[in-house]
Simulated scan of single mutants.
Amino acid sequence: MAATTRTTTDTTGPATGTRPEPAGEERRVPSRKRGTRSPYPTWFYLPAAVVYAVLFLVPTFASFYFSLTRWSLFDFEFIGLDNFVQFFREPALVTGLVNTVVFGVVTSALKVVLGLLLAVLLTSQIIARGFLRSVVFFPVLVSTIGVGITFQVLMDPFGGFINEALAVIGIEGPGWLTDPSLALLSVALVDVWKGVGLATVIYIAGIVSIPQEFFEAAKVDGASTWQNFRHILLPLARPATTTVIILSLIGGLRSFDLIWAMTRGGPGFTSDVIASVIYKQYQAGFYGLSTAGNVLLFLLVTAIVLPLSRFLNRKEVEL
């Protein structure tokens, strides 16, 4: 009996008769061009660029130009670098420059240390933790001028609450704002009291973002509280530390309103900073000299904060 041969027809292809794709060959899907970082067109950013140029770039370049002139509201005369030469020849102006650096370093250092300690306390299992967080942050919300006037009354050497409280326990209070050696430090302590709440909140956010697995593993290994703090919390809270340092340092170098409300740069020029010196020069009608002070303040903040920010961020990446 003859064997019957069957022929099978491949019916897996499309009904239209087109040739099916070879096995193993991937279908190419059109993709967006490489290097395109944003789906928005360039002109979409034009309004923001115009606002930035009008409110920042134009005033900045205008300040650099007018710092090289002797100007008033109606005319100006180009004098080159004479304003800067005169600035550094004035002892009071140089004192303001030194005080600015001292004030910025002291306040930022204290905010970092106190903010970290308060954050550790307020992330532990203590009673009324939420209420205490609100209390610590409350001074940040209060007007700086109001704080300055209040502490000016409290620190009054004759009848102020602080000295009166010290007198009860037999301590003679100093002239917080009238002693040339204490005036700047007293204002710095008030600035720390007002601003440490923000540093604490930043640290709290950094601490609560640390995975609990690290602490649980350390507990299994028998690590002490100090070892947890040193080897886990401090390294992993480094981004928060960088943020607190940069923000506190910028705020300290640019501080004016609190100092003006409490001491107006006195006694003498002992608590003057660049910002208060600039304001006094404007009041006296030396517009070119005060503009040069503004430029020096801008350059000082940039020269300190920019390298420090790059250094801290690089260390953070290496960690």
Rank of each mutant, 00 (worst) to 15 (best):
Q227T: 13
W226T: 14
A199L: 05
L233P: 08
V196D: 09
Q227Y: 07
L184E: 01
L184H: 02
A199V: 06
I210S: 03
L166F: 00
K219Y: 07
F215Q: 06
V220A: 11
F214M: 01
R230N: 09
G160L: 01
G197I: 03
E164Q: 12
A205W: 01
N163T: 00
E172S: 14
A205N: 13
L233D: 05
A217H: 02
F229L: 14
I171G: 05
V192C: 07
V201H: 06
S209C: 05
M155Y: 10
G170R: 09
L177H: 00
A218I: 05
T150H: 06
V153N: 09
G195D: 12
A205M: 04
K219I: 11
V168I: 15
R230Q: 13
L166K: 01
A183S: 12
Q227I: 05
V196L: 10
V168A: 10
I210W: 04
A188G: 02
Y203F: 15
A199G: 15
I171D: 05
A165E: 04
T200P: 02
I207P: 06
F158C: 00
S224A: 09
V208P: 00
A167E: 14
I169T: 14
M155D: 01
T178C: 07
Q212Y: 13
V201K: 11
H231A: 13
D221Y: 00
I162Y: 02
L182R: 00
I202C: 11
V153E: 13
Y203D: 02
I169K: 00
W226H: 13
V201E: 03
I207C: 06
S181E: 15
F229D: 04
W176S: 03
F151M: 11
L166A: 03
G173K: 10
T178Q: 07
P180G: 03
W226F: 15
I149T: 14
F229Y: 14
A223H: 03
Q227A: 15
S186V: 08
F161V: 15
I171A: 04
P211F: 02
S181I: 01
A223E: 08
T200Q: 09
I162W: 09
P211V: 04
W193I: 07
L177Y: 06
N163V: 08
V153L: 14
G175Q: 09
A188H: 10
L198S: 06
L177Q: 04
K194E: 06
L185H: 11
T200L: 05
P211T: 12
N228Y: 01
S209F: 11
L154K: 08
